[in-house]
């Protein structure tokens, strides 16, 4: 900081230049577009959302009514579908994350052994990640359809007695959603974990082996503590990703059957966003109130997670 100030001061002193044409001027100019975008497309919409959350607002300002906290009251006390969507989001995150991270960890540990073809495996596992979520939904809904290939394979192999309708009840739909979701994103976690494992020095394992530490012991006492910081980030990314899962749900089940697989974000989309909303003229004020609370909850979970995982790190 001090050197920065000195530098700035001396530049001013020596060149006696005006602001226009100075380095700072060019800096501001080079980031002008994102800064304008930040104000216009992020800050303004947040204030906009805040303002209308106190109104009954159907998109026409002249008919908007100021109703103080009624929007919040309604959805805290009466609108259980929103809170059920939160329940679904947590179910999704709490099942998907452990399954996916454990699975990715096993694969990363296997691939980390410098075996032949490791690069090829890693690349292939990553493939579903780069495919459009919309297409993933399309493919899965074909494969899981009543006469689809999944039912066909399961019946043929004896895992199922007869075809099941994966889209007809909540738990079958959830099973499908989680299987598909793990399929489409585990590869990125394999990559993250491999990048983390590459930072652990080989010598540590060698000396531990000489000391007679078992494989399990080596994993929990060497690998895990050493990759803890990266692991923490991986979990945070996975958490945020799972909590804000949206597009994937919309294209695969569209929240069905009867909104039972809606997550919070897909619920908001299917209620209020044009092209996805079931009603042509939603009460936007209500949507603003919901979005506001949702944003705060997601941010709080992220902050809480950060605090909590820092404590965990200190424990190690």
């Amino acid at each position: 900081m001090v050197t920065e100030k000195n530098l700035a001061a001396s530049t001013v002193a020596i060149k006696k230049k005006k602001f226009i044409g100075s380095e700072a001027f060019w800096c501001y100019l080079m980031i002008a577009i994102p800064v304008i975008g930040f104000v216009v497309l992020h800050v303004y919409p947040i204030f906009w959302t805040f303002k209308w959350s106190f109104f009954s607002y159907y998109g026409v300002e002249s008919t908007a009514k100021f109703i103080v906290l009624d929007n919040f009251k309604t959805f805290f006390t009466q609108d259980f579908t929103y809170w059920k969507a939160w329940g679904n989001t947590l179910i999704f995150a709490l099942i998907k994350m452990p399954v996916e991270i454990t699975f990715a960890m096993l694969l990363a540990l296997a691939l980390n052994k410098k075996m032949k073809g490791a690069g090829m495996f890693r690349a292939m596992y990553f493939l579903p990640n780069i495919i459009s979520v919309a297409i993933v939904g399309l493919i899965l809904s074909n494969m899981f359809s009543y006469n689809g290939i999944i039912n066909n394979l399961f019946v043929k192999s004896g895992l199922l007695n007869e075809n099941i309708d994966w889209f007809a009840d909540k738990w079958h739909a959830f099973a499908m959603i989680i299987i598909g979701s793990v399929w489409s994103t585990f590869g990125v976690n394999v990559m993250y974990l491999l990048a983390a494992l590459a930072t652990v020095p080989e010598e540590l394992y060698e000396s531990a082996e000489i000391d007679g530490a078992s494989k399990m012991r080596r994993f929990f006492s060497i690998t895990l503590p050493l990759i803890a910081p990266v692991f923490q980030t991986i979990l945070l990314l996975s958490l945020i990703g799972s909590l804000s899962v949206n597009e994937y749900i919309i294209v695969l089940t569209n929240g069905g059957p009867h909104g039972q697989t809606n997550t919070v974000m897909s619920y908001l989309y299917t209620k209020f966003v044009p092209g996805f909303a079931d009603s042509a003229n939603p009460q936007l004020g209500y949507g603003c109130a919901m979005s506001l609370v949702t944003t705060i909850i997601v941010a709080c979970i992220a902050i809480f997670y950060n605090k909590f995982s820092n404590k965990m790190k200190n424990l190690y």
């Binding site: 992020h42 919409p45 947040i46 906009w48 959302t49 945020i240 909590l243 804000s244 949206n246 919070v264 974000m265 908001l268 989309y269 209020f272 966003v273 996805f276 936007l284 949507g287 603003c288 919901m290 979005s291 949702t294 944003t295 997601v298 941010a299 992220a302």
Partner: peptide, 8 residues
């Protein structure tokens, strides 16, 4: 970390 859920 800010996810406004589409209403914006």
């Amino acid at each position: 970390f800010i996810k406004t859920g589409g209403i914006t």
